[in-house]
């Protein structure tokens, strides 16, 4: 579903300028706090009115200052998930869930309530009031409520920022699963790079009120390393098997050995690029549990360091070395190297 926005909005001394067209089902909006992300989302939802410009979704004009079109938010069929769940405190979980569903035209009711309740695992909460739900439960009900209004597009305004770090990836899984199962495109706002990389393919960056630059999530991650703590590999791994004091995860057609943290096995891991050690020749004896040969696909500038994109069998991995080391090792495109990673370098996310 194509979303086109070219709009301007002045709020006091703050000025938002947006000009972009996105056509993916997983779009991110990334930028620091106060950069205008929420203002932008409100304009798309119809909760705010641009000073001038045009907004259209799937070919339908939602706002056009020239022809005076402004479709009311309740007629846009654009759902919204807020930072705090914003459940109606005077209604039960059941009534909250059905609030949008009841107001949705029967012709548009394609998503069945019991299917949503099932995916979000909130069946046991239906009869309860919303006051004594936990943060994660509240956000799950809010996701269900938004999805049951059968939106054409779902806007998410930092839905994870008010949630405990330990629960974040659980909610991410619910968000991704429900949107995938019910085939709803979404726009996801965050100021956290990690959330952006997990949730979005294409990312709109917002800076100082300017929302015009579209990049891929991967490019965003590589570009952001100059001032942050370096590039971080995100690995999605499956089917762990116990191998002594470590877990062996399937990674492409080989295994990665990851230290047992005592927590239940995860599927998503962080691996800092600087923890990938490169060797010119195969190191015979080494304490790192993962050693494999790789081909350098590409090198890129990361400020004082050099980014090295490696092809390891069927998988890609980014390593980070100092420029001097890169010169000495003659790392260039096509070079054959050996990479070593300690089992302790992986950080499970959830």
């Amino acid at each position: 579903m194509e979303l086109h926005v070219s709009a301007r909005k002045q709020l006091g001394t703050f000025r938002l300028e947006a000009d972009f067209t996105v056509d993916g089902s997983r779009t991110g909006v990334f930028g620091p706090s106060g950069s205008g992300k929420s203002t932008l989302l409100n304009l798309v939802a119809g909760l705010g009115v641009p000073d001038s410009g045009r907004i259209s979704l799937g070919g339908e004009t939602l706002f056009d200052s020239r022809s005076g079109v402004h479709v009311a938010p309740e007629h846009r069929r654009i759902g919204m998930i807020f930072q705090h769940a914003q459940l109606f405190p005077h209604l039960s979980v059941h009534s909250n869930l059905y609030y949008g569903y009841k107001r949705c035209h029967p012709a548009h009711r394609k998503i069945r309530p019991d299917a949503v309740i099932d995916v979000l695992q909130i069946g046991h909460l239906l009869k309860r009031g919303v006051a004594n739900l936990s943060g994660g439960e509240k956000q799950r009900v809010a996701i269900g409520r938004a999805i049951l209004s059968n939106p054409r597009l779902l806007l998410m305004d930092e839905p994870l920022s008010a949630i405990d770090a330990s629960l974040k990836f659980q909610i991410i899984a619910y968000l991704k699963d429900t949107c995938a199962v019910f085939n709803i495109p979404y726009v996801f706002i965050s100021h956290t790079l990690l959330e952006m990389r997990v949730m979005a393919d294409r990312v709109l960056t917002v800076e100082d009120g300017c929302a015009c630059r579209l990049v891929t999530a991967e490019d965003l991650a590589r570009g952001a390393t100059k001032d942050a703590g370096g590039y971080i590999n995100l690995l999605r791994l499956a089917s762990p098997a116990r191998a002594g004091d470590v877990h062996a995860y399937q990674w492409g057609d080989r295994h990665l050995f990851i230290a047992d943290t005592g927590e239940p096995p995860s599927t998503l891991f962080e691996l800092p690029a600087r923890d990938v050690i490169l060797f010119k020749k195969h190191p015979e004896v080494i304490s790192a549990r993962n050693v494999f040969s790789a081909t350098v696909v590409k090198t890129f500038d990361m400020g004082v360091r050099q980014g090295v994109e490696l092809q390891c069998c069927s998988e890609r991995l980014i390593a980070e070395v100092t420029k001097k080391a890169a010169r000495q090792m003659e790392i260039r495109e096509g070079a054959e190297v050996h990479a070593a990673i300690k089992a302790l370098s992986f950080r499970p996310l959830g």
């Binding site: 119809g46 846009r76 914003q86 109606f88 949008g100 107001r103 409520r145 209004s149």
Partner: peptide
């Protein structure tokens, strides 16, 4: 919270609807 009214609007409630189902009860 103003966002409760916004939530109601994005869920398909018109202005009058949001007044009687959100603001009056709260």
């Amino acid at each position: 919270d103003r966002n409760l009214v916004y939530a109601a609007r994005t869920l398909g409630a018109g202005w009058f609807d949001s007044i009687f189902t959100v603001i009056v009860p709260l």
